[in-house]
Simulated scan of single mutants.
Amino acid sequence: MATTAHAAPAAVSSDKGTYTYIAVFSAVLYTVLLIAPVIAGKLIEQFGLTPVQVGTLFSLELGAFSLATVPAYLWLRRMNLRTASYIFTAIVIAGNVVSGFVDDFGLLMIARVVTSLAAGSITVIILTLSGKTANPSRAFGIFVVFQLAMGALILAVFPSLFAGAPVSAIYWTLAGLAVLCLLVVNRIDGEVLRTAAAPVPGHAANRVPVFKAAAGMAAVLLFYIALSGVWSFIAQISAGSGIDLSASSLVLSLATVGGILSALVATALGETPRRKLYLAAGYAGMALSIVLLFGSPALIQFAVAAVIFKFAWTFILPYLLSTLSSLSSGAHLMNTTNLMIGTGFSIGPIVSGALIQSGGGSFTGMLVFALAGVLASCALVLMAQRR
């Protein structure tokens, strides 16, 4: 009886520590991806880089971020997660410090790839720990909220704060932020994966439903292909409709606020038996927003579409990820999910750009493709729900 009485508070305390870890690391680690527009101008100015070189650098960073999944198959269940967090955070700090000192583009690429591999490795830990909490939807909601909040802060502060500073100042600021992450590493249970109860042979709860897992993975991949494809070109859709740049920027800022609010709503709701309903509603909203972008939407229609799109996207994401975490008590399913996210992010803009170009500048083909991707993702994630 005594053991039972103390188990719940211990679990709650452990979850609070995990939530803190997720919040701090997700805000800091995604900063470099969020300030890409700020860094791009600095790199071109300071190193004399071409747009192709800058694009290559960011593609390598994003690729390394998701490819960190591959080595994680080897270490994730074998290493103490606190030790792994300290090691990878130290690499992120060192990588950002070195990035500020190098004056050769080749060396900069190497430094950025190594830094992103370490940051991606910590993301694998975040996703895995989120699925281990008593309320995975809330944990994934925190993961999304703090990325978006930091993104909004960065876009508001960084351009003016670093207007006259060299790119090294930005990288060193990122290193300083990463140092702060070290303060929350001890909030997690480093042995949570290694001390998990051994599976009982033949027990149904220990089996990963292969079809549902495959459907869930495909849902995540298609979701990210669709959203990254549309969001990458949403400003161009606005311009193609003759909407003024300042008005378009204001709309996208409001959409970002809407995204933060919806992620907060998902975080507050947390794990719920109505997850299937919430997912269906979120996907319906996302599909509606894409439909509203067809043709040449006027300002009000474009604003409604952009706000609904961002609101729906960030509302869906915590429940999409918690669906995957519910399918297996192991770590590797969430590890693979990180690979699906990175792959989807990479494929979306490339395919959308090709469809726009092949359509002679029309966005219709791209929007049809995105709409099909959203509907297919919705069908797959509903099939992946565990009864």
Rank of each mutant, 00 (worst) to 15 (best):
S322L: 05
D244E: 15
N135E: 11
V114Q: 01
G365V: 03
P9K: 08
T69E: 06
T323G: 09
M383C: 01
M217W: 12
K212L: 10
M150I: 05
F88H: 03
G100K: 06
L222C: 06
A134P: 01
L129P: 09
T256R: 10
V251Y: 06
K212N: 11
S160A: 15
T20I: 12
A298S: 13
Q147A: 09
G282A: 13
R275G: 13
V92Q: 02
L252H: 02
A119M: 03
G240L: 04
L292W: 01
A152I: 12
I243Y: 01
I125V: 15
G229W: 13
G55P: 10
V54Q: 02
P318I: 03
F47M: 10
I234T: 06
L60C: 12
P349C: 12
L339R: 01
A84T: 06
Y171C: 08
S99C: 10
P37R: 13
V113S: 09
M217A: 12
D15S: 09
V184D: 08
S13K: 12
S249E: 13
A175M: 10
I290R: 07
S322V: 02
K132I: 02
L117W: 08
I347D: 04
G270N: 09
S325T: 11
G361F: 03
A219W: 07
A196D: 13
P9E: 09
L277A: 14
A27K: 07
V251R: 04
P136H: 09
L371N: 08
Q147H: 04
K310A: 15
V230Y: 09
V368W: 14
A298I: 03
P349D: 12
V179Y: 03
I308G: 04
W172Q: 12
I87F: 15
V32L: 11
A149H: 01
T3R: 10
V230L: 08
M366L: 11
A354Y: 07
I300G: 00
L155I: 02
